[in-house]
Design a protein around this nucleic acid. Sequence first.
DNA 1: CATGAATGAGAGTTCATTCAT
DNA 2: GATGAATGAACTCTCATTCAT
Lengths: 200, 200, 200, 200
Amino acid sequence: MGIKERKDRQKTEMREAILSAALKLFSGDGFDNVTMRRIAENIEYSVGTIYLYFKDRNEIFFELHKLGFEEFYKRQLAIQDVKDPLKRLTEHGLVYIQFAIDYPLYYDLMFISRIPGKTIKSQHDWKSGHRTYDLLKLNISQAKGAGYFKNVDIEVAAFSLWSFVHGIASLYVRDRMMIVPPEAVKPLVTGALKFIERAY
Amino acid sequence: MGIKERKDRQKTEMREAILSAALKLFSGDGFDNVTMRRIAENIEYSVGTIYLYFKDRNEIFFELHKLGFEEFYKRQLAIQDVKDPLKRLTEHGLVYIQFAIDYPLYYDLMFISRIPGKTIKSQHDWKSGHRTYDLLKLNISQAKGAGYFKNVDIEVAAFSLWSFVHGIASLYVRDRMMIVPPEAVKPLVTGALKFIERAY
Amino acid sequence: MGIKERKDRQKTEMREAILSAALKLFSGDGFDNVTMRRIAENIEYSVGTIYLYFKDRNEIFFELHKLGFEEFYKRQLAIQDVKDPLKRLTEHGLVYIQFAIDYPLYYDLMFISRIPGKTIKSQHDWKSGHRTYDLLKLNISQAKGAGYFKNVDIEVAAFSLWSFVHGIASLYVRDRMMIVPPEAVKPLVTGALKFIERAY
Amino acid sequence: MGIKERKDRQKTEMREAILSAALKLFSGDGFDNVTMRRIAENIEYSVGTIYLYFKDRNEIFFELHKLGFEEFYKRQLAIQDVKDPLKRLTEHGLVYIQFAIDYPLYYDLMFISRIPGKTIKSQHDWKSGHRTYDLLKLNISQAKGAGYFKNVDIEVAAFSLWSFVHGIASLYVRDRMMIVPPEAVKPLVTGALKFIERAY
DNA sequence: CATGAATGAGAGTTCATTCAT
DNA sequence: GATGAATGAACTCTCATTCAT
């Protein structure tokens, strides 16, 4: 079975190289910057080769999209063992924002960009989204159990917190923070996460 | 002088038709969807005609951008006479979100999209952005004077509130609310604006 | 009759303004630089107005062409009263080159450029050219009478002298003299005109 | 390795086909006539294909330019073994003119046309031009050694001879010889080259 | 007389995609 | 599995010209 495995591994590596090149280009100027030619140049293969690994341009974006959600969820799970519910919620927000900082391209693709080929996407989104959203609501309800969020509907709280961190992440990812000096960004973000706790 | 006036009016109408067509197309799939050809088709004129009213493609975006900011600011000013600082702040947030709902395309253009030809833009942005941000900070400081935002830095509060409403608006504009049923959107939003007040 | 005359005069002035603007633009980058729009901008009239004075773009070039030949011939006549045949011939060459220096655009148009709408042109060219060429041959034959050009066919001599000065003028007009330092141009030209005398 | 060679050959052939089509079109009406679309039609390929062989339109002109200068210099070298300095100089002139006759399009491109994208060009021009000009001066100085060009500055002589042949070539290439009947052209040219010898 | 609005044609260039080799 | 050649459609923009007003 060694041969087949090696082939599989090679196939995976190639796909990863393509995806990684696409991500890199995406950072440049958004979608338009990700052309098949440029991906090909980047991985030092011919254009046609890409089509051996992906059906078309859209499939590349779709795959990136999926990978993004996986990494995103993994990170969220990682903080689920924090005992203190308040702390956990704040961590949750931090995880969210940190993900946007670490993978602005994934974040952009997942939560901001309008992607061509929406239909295919939405189904997957739906599942990924729900999974994540449920986790948030779980954390909120546990915080509620610990005395926070008095008189607050869980749905409202979830939506609020989500909007809050998404707002921060979006401003960061799409470079709309010019209004604040660069060195002030970090304290502002941590300050904001502290501020929202007042509402818990 | 009726002739000149009629001509002026026609010129204005044409510019508006072009801008409106551009906005409409923009909603479809973002910038790439707004091509000169498609605008022309839309207004049922030849491509060259557009160039009689706008220097080039960028000028169209720039104009839309400007119009958006004007309307946006006007709306913000309109609620400045609300006496109660708490109420005014909530109104402020509502105005923000309502703007996004009423003019999703403007909102997209102004706060989400990556626009080609950044240099020209940024200067105008800077001014428009500051004007708006200062208004927010003013309202917060007045609320502070009324006893709210104890122990909270104004900058942090401003950034937090901005992020919050921008998060809501972005999720709406870029259609990332699939997670919540459509009819739940409105109560969620008002609920969220109520929720954030707990942090004041 | 005053009215008609004034109208005629105005018409002429307008035509001249257009032609002069065209010439000016031509200097920029050759023909492509002479667009109807740019001419219009230059004379501060609308594009359509030009069509009231010239049938189309070609007619403008044709007219310039004609004007050039007229000025050219006038200058040639002006040196016909030089008594010494040798001196007169050298003057003739000088006049030729000086014309190219003073009116590079005319020269270009008349002797270098490929003009669209050749058919119309050639007839006029033929006449203008002959007139000039005959003058040259006249001067040569008189020099011959004075002992120069022994054993030289007049046709050959005329062609030779014409080629000679045209060569100098062309190199100058089309900027092909980079090979010699700018300050050396003038002495070279006068030197060349002196040199060719050795062949007389 | 036959495959690679065949591919190389095909690539070369394609480039040549494109260049040759460009030259052909150029003859029609100068630069403006050489459009990418027309080249494509001519070689019966799609427009995009040309861009697989040349970076852009300018590169095509630049390449033609270069090829022209190469052929030109090769021809000049070919007559350097003529012993008699007088004869060699006359041959030199003939070579010059013959080149213009054989490759009017090259000649036009090299010595007459105003080319867009001058910057790139001029450096190459400078070298090619100097190389040629030096050869001319060498030949003159050797003729001088053999007793010709008494009391004539070499620079002046070089400039004069260059102008002379360039004049002839230009008149021919740009079709300004209508004044003389076609069958008279050849004798006139040889006559002129004989005539100029009188000045040596 | 003069204009400004409009157009169709055409320019150079880039792209995603296909396919024979 | 990989390539390079090829294409057709699309892009932004400019032009000469026409014509109702």
